[in-house]
C-alpha cells in the first residue's frame, strides 16, 4: 500500500491554479490593469472588483494577474539560468577535478563572496533596468549555489561503479555526465530547483520592492507590495491581494519540492 503524497497533490493543485491564473492574466483581465477610474477610487473588494481598487481606481485583481506573470517570468528565467549553467559547471568540476575544478570553483567562490543581493543590484545598475536584465542578474547570482550542489553530487558519483562500468563500455564523457550521472542526482537537483524558484520569487519581489529592475508599467508583485504600503491603512486589500498571490506561488512550488523529496525513489 502506498501512502498518498499529500505534499505533492496539494502542491500541484495550488501551482496549477496559480499558473492558470497567470496564463489567464496573460490573455484576459477583468479590467485594463493600467486604466484609472476616478469613480471607484480605493474601493473595498466587491463583486465588481474582487480584490478592490487602489487609490487611482485601478482594478487590483487585474494588476495582480499581470504582476504574478511578471514575477513568474523572472523567477522561472532566474532558475533556468542558474540551473543550466550551474549544472554544467558543477558537472565538469565535480567529475574532472584537478585544475579545471580549482579555476572554476575559485571563480564560483568569488561570485558567492559578494552578498548576493548586492551583486544583483550592481549587475542591474550596470545592465540597466528592465525585466530581462533583472532576470539575467538574478540568474548569475544563483549560479554558484547550484554549481556547488551539483559538483558535490558528481564528485560522489565519479567513484561509483556504474560510472566505471559506463567508462568500460566506452561511453563518451558527455554521455557519462548527462545520461548516466545526471538522472541519479535529479532528486537533489529538483529540490534545489524548487527552493531556488521560491528564493527567486522573493528576490525579485525584494528587488522590485526597492524599485530596482522592473519598471512601473510592467509592475510585478514585489513592486505592487512596495506601492501598496503607503496606503496600507486606506487600501489594505491591495497589499493583501499581491501578498496572497506571492504566498500561493511559493507555497505551491514549495509543496511540490517537499513532495518530490518524500516520494520513494
Amino acid at each position: 500500500m502506498k501512502k498518498r503524497n499529500y505534499f505533492l497533490i496539494f502542491g500541484l493543485l495550488i501551482s496549477t491554479v496559480v499558473v492558470l491564473f497567470i496564463l489567464l492574466g496573460y490573455f484576459w483581465t477583468p479590467y485594463d490593469p493600467m486604466k484609472m477610474n476616478g469613480a471607484v477610487r480605493s474601493s473595498a473588494p466587491s463583486l465588481a472588483h474582487l480584490m478592490g481598487t487602489d487609490k487611482f481606481g485601478r482594478d487590483i485583481l487585474s494588476r495582480v494577474m499581470k504582476g504574478a506573470g511578471a514575477s513568474f517570468f523572472v523567477a522561472f528565467g532566474t532558475v533556468l539560468i542558474g540551473t543550466v549553467v550551474g549544472t554544467v559547471v558543477g558537472a565538469l568540476t565535480g567529475y574532472f577535478g584537478g585544475w579545471l575544478d580549482e579555476v572554476l570553483m575559485r571563480f564560483n567562490d568569488a561570485l558567492s563572496a559578494f552578498p548576493s543581493f548586492l551583486l544583483a543590484l550592481v549587475l542591474v545598475s550596470v545592465l540597466g533596468p528592465g525585466r530581462r536584465h533583472l532576470l539575467l542578474a538574478l540568474g548569475i547570482v544563483f549560479i554558484p549555489s547550484y554549481a556547488r550542489i551539483v559538483r558535490t553530487e558528481f564528485k560522489r558519483a565519479r567513484s561509483q561503479n556504474y560510472v566505471k562500468s559506463a567508462q568500460i563500455m566506452g561511453a563518451g564523457t558527455a554521455r557519462i555526465l548527462f545520461v548516466h550521472i545526471l538522472p541519479n542526482i535529479w532528486p537533489v537537483l529538483l529540490s534545489a530547483i524548487t527552493i531556488g524558484f521560491n528564493n527567486a520569487v522573493l528576490a525579485e519581489a525584494a528587488m522590485s520592492y526597492l524599485g530596482i529592475g522592473v519598471s512601473p508599467d510592467e509592475a510585478s508583485l514585489g513592486y505592487m507590495l512596495s506601492d501598496s504600503q503607503a496606503y496600507l491603512s486606506v487600501t489594505p486589500w491591495y497589499a493583501l491581494g499581491a501578498g496572497l498571490v506571492i504566498v500561493l506561488l511559493i507555497l505551491g512550488v514549495g509543496l511540490i519540492g517537499e513532495g518530490l523529496q518524500r516520494k520513494d525513489i
Binding site: 561509483q160 566505471k164 541519479n184
Partner: peptide, 25 residues
Amino acid sequence: FQDPLSSLNPAYTVGWILEEPLRIY
C-alpha cells in the same frame, strides 16, 4: 563487479542498462 547494485545504474531499468552498450556503439 562484486556488488552489482553499485555497478548497475540505479536510475534506469534493466532493459535500458542492457541496451546501453549497443546504443553507444
